[in-house]
């Protein structure tokens, strides 16, 4: 007990002497992390095995591109856009069919979602991460014929090479719709059509509002990038073609 008394006295003296503190000055700024700051060696060494494992995978050759493919190599359709729309539809079809018993009629993606070109030569896992860095996931929205018309009009007005599959569109010289066919047939009133797209677009991305209130919606739990990697593994050489699916007369 004796030992406590001086301690207590000290504590009391300290607390009494202590003035209430308040903020007198604030300074705020940001510090840029650049190569002028040396890397912490311990951290760097810790990252290294994780990095090596990823790099090994990223360099794995999955397929082959017969030529350079980029999103401006056509006017309303592009080789890379056609590839994207085709594999998203192809890879999603069995998953969707198994769950719902229905087939996929149309694929619609967005031109802005193609984030990198595919260079002629070997295609690696890294290619898939470059083209599709986002985690966008595949959904299938069942649309009324009215909304499919809205989709076609959107594409005509956008005048952009948004990737499509299962749908062919011919525009007049003034960008009005001349003909729009789903699987080779005109859009029938009263029918519904299944559209495979990304969750981003279905939620109103790129103002594709016709996707927002579908008759039915199926979330496939399948990322676009994973569909791409799965697809690349099944083909020796990927197609790089313009086939007239979206043209202006």
């Amino acid at each position: 007990m004796k030992r406590f008394i001086p301690l207590l006295a000290l504590f009391l003296a300290f607390s009494c002497a202590k003035e209430k503190q308040d903020v007198s000055r604030i300074e705020g700024k940001r510090i840029n992390i650049t190569d002028s700051i040396a890397a912490n060696e311990e951290i760097e060494a810790y990252i290294q095995p994780f990095r090596e494992r990823i790099q090994e995978d990223m360099q794995k050759v999955l397929s082959y591109a017969p030529k350079d493919m980029h999103k401006r190599d056509g006017e309303l359709e592009t080789t890379i856009g056609n590839l994207m729309a085709d594999f998203v539809k192809l890879q999603s079809e069995p998953v969707y069919k198994k769950r719902t018993g229905k087939s996929i009629d149309i694929c619609l993606l967005n031109h802005g979602g193609i984030r990198a070109p595919i260079a002629k030569g070997p295609i690696t896992t890294q290619t898939a991460f470059n083209v599709m860095p986002f985690e966008n996931s595949i959904v299938v929205a069942e649309l009324t014929a009215e909304n499919v018309h809205a989709l076609v009009n959107y594409l005509a007005e956008a005048k952009r090479a948004h990737p499509i599959a299962g749908l062919t569109i011919k525009l007049n010289n003034d960008f009005t719709v001349h003909e729009a066919l789903v699987n080779g047939k005109p859009i029938e009133d009263g029918k519904t059509y299944t559209v495979v797209t990304s969750d981003y677009l279905q939620h109103g991305g790129d103002r594709m509002y016709f996707l927002q209130d579908p008759v039915t919606l199926e979330v496939l739990d399948y990322k676009i990038r994973n569909a791409m990697i799965d697809y690349f593994k099944t083909v020796d050489t990927i197609p790089a073609k313009l086939d007239g699916r979206f043209v202006k007369l």
Partner: peptide, 15 residues
């Protein structure tokens, strides 16, 4: 970037 905010304190009466 890293944000940096410095708070300097003083006796309340001085503040």
């Amino acid at each position: 970037y890293v944000g940096r905010i410095d708070f300097y304190f003083d006796d309340e009466k001085n503040v």
